[in-house]
Amino acid sequence: MGARIIVVTSGKGGVGKTTSTANIAVALAKSGKKVVAVDADIGLRNLDVVMGLENRVVFNFIDVIEKNCRLNQALVRDKRVENLFLLPAAQTRTKDAVNTEQMMELCALLRPDFDFVLLDCPAGIEGGFKNAAAGADEALVVTTPEVPSVRDADRIIGMLESMGKSPIRLIINRFRANMVQDGDMLAREDILDILSIKLIGIVPEDDGVIKSSNRGEPLTFGLNSPAAQAYANIAERLQGRDVPLMELDVGGARGFLSQIKRFFRLR
């Protein structure tokens, strides 16, 4: 059957979508799967930096689509872990440089040679998102436990459903249990009530994420932080393994939900 092609997306920028893509890709590769992380955010190329591979980029996936190079020439192999590759985005092109049909063609080229293809998709609901998500089978939606982020995730989920992506699963990122307890952040149950999709992982707030992104060393190269373990657990669940969710909730202001439901469409 070839690769499972999974788009990693979010309703708004800055919620950790690219960091999640990089860390999950590393964790899947460490478990023995052949993985390619595709930076589909044309013009804002960041996945290569987060993965620490920016100095090795020669070609990008637009070059592949336009037949300026072969696919294997554009793939960047990560020498730190076996079977992990990056397919970078073009930094000097706009999001309309690739259309839906071309993205589906690219995914078809990748499918036979990999176990997992992770598409780091542009945030938001514009054409760049639709084009990037076109070739995916499944989706991971990343949100933070904040009302604007969850509201935007709700819109993205509706679009993914209309595109026939299934399953669509949720990653709650930058979770802070103390703020949930104080009623200043949405609890896990609040978010799931609003979005009505399956939760695949909760990633706690972790200063190591910023440090690792700046160094170009995804946390999942090691497992010495809570966020690294959370991403590794997500990779395990993607492979069908029953891994319990980390116990991060210490209670929640469930009453907060009733105050914000008016901001969300009925699902």
Rank of each mutant, 00 (worst) to 15 (best):
N131H: 08
N173H: 01
G124H: 01
L186S: 04
K95P: 02
D184L: 14
V142G: 05
D96L: 13
I168Y: 07
A177E: 08
A187D: 08
I156F: 00
P112D: 10
V141G: 12
D113I: 06
K198F: 06
E105T: 15
D182K: 11
I172R: 06
N131Q: 06
L110D: 10
G135F: 06
I168N: 10
S196H: 07
G183K: 11
R174T: 08
E138T: 12
Q102N: 11
E105A: 14
I156L: 03
D184S: 13
A108F: 08
M185C: 14
G158V: 00
L160G: 05
A136I: 12
G158T: 03
L140G: 04
R169K: 13
T144N: 04
R176E: 11
I197T: 12
L110M: 10
M103Q: 12
E126P: 08
L192F: 04
F175Q: 00
V150L: 00
L110H: 04
G124T: 07
T144I: 02
P167I: 03
V150Y: 00
G124K: 02
N99M: 01
S196W: 01
L192Q: 14
K165W: 05
R111I: 05
P148N: 08
F114C: 15
L186Q: 08
S166E: 09
D152I: 07
L140D: 12
L119D: 10
D113K: 15
D113P: 05
D193A: 15
E101F: 05
I168D: 07
V147M: 09
F129A: 11
M159H: 00
L195S: 11
G124M: 02
N99C: 09
R169T: 10
N131R: 08
A132H: 02
V117S: 04
L192G: 13
P145R: 08
G158H: 01
L119T: 06
K198Q: 14
N173C: 00
A177G: 09
R151K: 15
C107F: 05
P122L: 03
L170E: 11
P112S: 13
P167Q: 02
M104E: 15
